Amino acid sequence: MAPRDDNPDELTQKTLKQVGERLRAIRKGKGFSNYEQFANKYALNRSTYGKYEKGQDLRLSSLLKILRIMEISPSDFFSEGFDS
C-alpha cells in the first residue's frame, strides 16, 4: 500500500477551489450574504463551512449534507462552474 499523500495535486486543488466557489454562489443565491449566517441557520460548524467555501478539502458525506440543505442535487451542483 502506498503512503498517504495529504498534499493534493494541482488539478485537485483547482477542483476544490471550484467546489468552494460553487457553494458560495449557491449560498448567495439563496439570500445569505455571508457564510456565517448560512452555517448558523443550518447548524453547521461555521469555521469549517467557511473553509469549504475557500476550497479546503472536504469529505463527500459533508458535501452531500450541504447539498441536501441547499436543496440541490449533486448532478445540478456539478453542472455549472467546473471545467470539463
Rank of each mutant, 00 (worst) to 15 (best):
M1L: 13
A2C: 13
A2Q: 14
A2S: 15
P3I: 12
R4G: 10
R4T: 15
D5A: 14
D6A: 14
D6I: 11
N7H: 15
N7Y: 15
N7L: 15
P8K: 04
T12W: 00
Q13G: 08
K14Q: 13
L16Q: 13
L16A: 12
L16I: 01
K17H: 11
Q18R: 09
Q18K: 07
Q18P: 01
V19L: 10
V19F: 11
V19Q: 05
V19R: 07
G20F: 04
E21T: 08
R22T: 01
L23F: 06
A25L: 12
A25I: 07
R27N: 03
K28V: 09
K28T: 11
G29C: 10
G29K: 10
F32D: 09
S33Q: 14
N34I: 04
Y35G: 06
Y35F: 03
Y35T: 10
Y35V: 09
E36W: 00
E36S: 11
Q37H: 13
Q37D: 15
F38A: 01
F38E: 01
A39Q: 08
A39Y: 09
Y42S: 06
Y42L: 01
Y42T: 06
A43L: 11
L44A: 06
R46I: 11
R46E: 08
S47W: 05
S47P: 01
Y49W: 09
G50P: 03
G50Q: 11
E53G: 03
K54V: 02
G55C: 13
Q56I: 02
Q56V: 07
Q56Y: 11
L58W: 09
R59D: 08
L60H: 10
L60C: 13
L60T: 12
S61H: 06
L63T: 07
L64S: 08
L64K: 11
L64P: 04
K65Q: 04
I66S: 05
I66E: 00
L67V: 07
L67K: 06
I69C: 08
M70H: 11
M70K: 07
M70I: 03
M70W: 09
M70A: 05
E71Q: 10
I72M: 13
I72T: 14
S73Q: 09
S73W: 04
P74L: 10
P74E: 01
P74I: 05
S75H: 11
S75Y: 11
D76N: 10
D76E: 14
F77D: 05
F78C: 03
S79R: 04
S79F: 03
E80H: 12
F82R: 05
D83N: 14
D83E: 15
S84M: 06
S84E: 12
